[in-house]
């Protein structure tokens, strides 16, 4: 697993520059957060790393296989929960038995093994997002791109999803890029936070967090300090 490095990246759409002089490094096996207000260009960065769009500058270390967790769960309504996971694994893993084992393992990890034969319409939004996350971790990839995965969830579901996410991440050890506008999520989950702002957008601040993510609280001194700094930076930016 290699670090992913973006250097002096620039992206324009129809003459309108969205990001410029953009430098960022995703450390292998760590959770990096790209934090910024809505519409600043976070998804553009995600699309560049995911290979969905091209950009000027240097982008190095992108692995061949990437997993995604979207804002929408994007579960096929005609497939069961295990069918949805099997759908993305089929091209990568030939053995049905092996796929079955992997699916059972991740469903167990997100506490939804008993829903393996249920259809997405039988799940709550929180449960569906857990399946979407399980799919990303089950898929044999080195990098997970997460685009506002906790959006639309209530506090209880969000907190549960964060716990399951951290447990899976510890088990699988993948590199994660979390894109969000939510400071809570950024400080609770990340090893490093990059703040994206301005027009064209660029990295305006970065913060490192070294405490154990599994037992972080917003009230922890280091976390609340970083939170306050980010909040102030946001306020100045706005």
């Amino acid at each position: 697993m290699k670090d992913i490095v973006l250097k002096n990246v620039k992206k324009s759409y129809q003459g309108n520059t969205v990001i410029e002089n953009f430098d960022m490094m995703l450390e292998a096996g760590k959770i990096t957060c790209l934090l910024g207000v809505s519409g600043v260009g976070k998804s553009t960065v995600l699309n560049i790393i995911g290979g969905l769009t091209t950009a000027e500058g240097s982008v190095a270390g992108i692995p061949e296989s990437i997993s995604y967790v979207f804002q929408e769960t994007n579960l096929a309504p005609n497939l069961t929960v295990s069918g949805n996971l099997d759908f993305v694994l089929r091209a990568k893993i030939k053995s049905k038995e092996e796929r079955g084992k992997m699916i059972a393992e991740v469903l167990e990890a997100v506490g939804l093994i008993e829903y393996a034969d249920s259809y997405p319409c039988q799940l709550s939004i929180g449960m569906a997002q857990r399946i979407s996350m399980a799919r990303a971790f089950a898929y044999p990839s080195e990098l997970i791109l997460m685009d506002e995965p906790f959006r639309g969830l209530d506090i209880a579901n969000k907190s549960k999803l964060i716990d399951y996410f951290l447990a899976l991440w510890q088990k699988k050890g993948k590199t994660v890029l979390l894109v969000t506008h939510n400071i809570d999520e950024a400080v609770l989950l990340s090893d490093r936070i990059f703040m994206l702002s301005g027009k064209p957008a660029k990295i305006t601040a970065q913060f490192n967090l070294s405490s154990d993510k599994t037992c972080r609280k917003l009230s922890d001194q280091d976390i609340s300090e970083v939170f306050a700094k980010i909040y102030d930076t946001f306020a100045v930016g706005i």
């Binding site: 995911g50 969905l52 995604y68 979207f70 994007n74 096929a76 309504p77 005609n78 759908f87 993305v88």
Partner: peptide, 27 residues
């Protein structure tokens, strides 16, 4: 047909045959 589903299948590099038989046709 929900374009998000098709995007998801393409991002996960699902085979075209599987996209047709497991997404397009049933939906």
């Amino acid at each position: 047909l929900d374009s998000g589903l098709i995007d998801m299948a393409k991002l996960y590099k699902v085979k075209t045959g599987d996209i047709i038989t497991r997404l397009y046709i049933p939906n």
